[in-house]
Amino acid sequence: MTSTSRIAPTLAHAIWPAAGGLAALPRALVLMLAGTFVLAISAKVQVPFWPVPVTLQSLAVLVIGMSFGLRLGTATLALYLVQGAIGLPVFASGAGLAYLAGPTAGYLFGFVAAAALVGWLAERGWDRTIWLSMAAMTLGTLVLMGSGVAWLATLIGFEQAIASGFTPFIVGGLLKIVLGALMLPSVWKLIERR
């Protein structure tokens, strides 16, 4: 379904359909906690890569956003930031309110915006084909990186922010976009066969 006017079910809904009213709350809490656990693990995993090592965190953000949809995906990423703000070790390194004002703050807040965007697109069927998934994940990555670079530029200047906060991550970002875009439609195909 690629219609922009109708909301398509998300992967989370297809795998674990939501009940109505207050009965949906336990499901939402379980999914949010599972999502923040995946995010915390993905932040700690560093993959040796060129020109810099990459974490799987942005891939996790995009997959969670697209799998959960706009509201649940946004809430999950917001919970992740709250967990880090109160000192839980969910970020790549460090925690606390000061961490949310440091050089990576723009990326962290960009996670929420990126998850919201790709979640909204997934609810319009953009997670069903490789090309639409790739387009959604590219847009989500641009939002995430744009937010990160914009904040970093206030600390070190625009040129330096691009040089240290964007350029080294292009190749890894493209690889994660392709990986995510292959993953989501494949899961949908498995669900449809079931």
Rank of each mutant, 00 (worst) to 15 (best):
V143D: 11
V178A: 15
S3P: 03
L174T: 08
L179Q: 03
M134L: 15
P89I: 13
S58W: 05
F166T: 12
P9G: 14
G146M: 13
G96D: 12
G172M: 10
A181P: 00
A92W: 02
Q160F: 02
L174I: 15
Q83K: 13
V47H: 03
L190Q: 11
G87E: 02
G125V: 10
K44Y: 01
M1Q: 08
E123R: 08
A19Y: 05
V118S: 08
L139N: 05
T129F: 07
W16P: 08
A8T: 14
L152Y: 06
L81G: 12
P26D: 05
A40Y: 02
K176W: 08
L174N: 04
L29F: 12
G148F: 06
L25Y: 02
F91P: 09
T167L: 15
A98K: 08
L121I: 05
S5K: 14
L56F: 00
R71W: 11
L62H: 10
K189N: 10
T129C: 09
R6M: 12
M1Y: 03
G165V: 10
G94Y: 00
L88W: 01
F166V: 10
A114S: 13
A105M: 12
G102F: 08
E123T: 13
L144C: 14
I191Q: 11
K44P: 02
P168E: 08
R124Y: 06
V47Y: 02
G165Y: 03
R193M: 10
G173M: 07
P185Y: 03
P26A: 12
E123I: 13
M32N: 06
A161R: 07
S3Y: 05
S42T: 15
G65S: 06
G125A: 10
T4G: 12
R6G: 07
L144Q: 07
A85F: 04
I7L: 14
S133G: 15
G102H: 08
G21C: 12
A92H: 09
S133H: 03
A122R: 04
V52I: 15
A135S: 15
Q46A: 14
L31R: 03
F158R: 06
Q46D: 07
G110Q: 05
G172P: 06
P9H: 13
W151P: 08
S147R: 01
M32E: 02
S164L: 13
L81K: 01
P168R: 00
A181C: 05
L70E: 06
A75P: 07
K176R: 09
H13M: 12
L25P: 08
V171Y: 05
A14M: 10
W131D: 01
G20D: 10
A19R: 15
I41E: 04
W126M: 09
G172S: 10
T138P: 01
P103K: 12
M66P: 06
G146Q: 05
L39K: 05
S42M: 13
Y99G: 01
G110T: 11
Q160L: 13
L152G: 00
I15P: 11
Y80P: 01
L56K: 02
Q160S: 15
A161T: 11
L77M: 14
E123S: 12
E123Y: 08
W188I: 00
T141Y: 11
F169G: 01
S147W: 02
G125W: 01
I191R: 13
F68N: 04
S186T: 14
F169V: 03
A101Y: 02
P89H: 09
V143Q: 08
R193W: 04
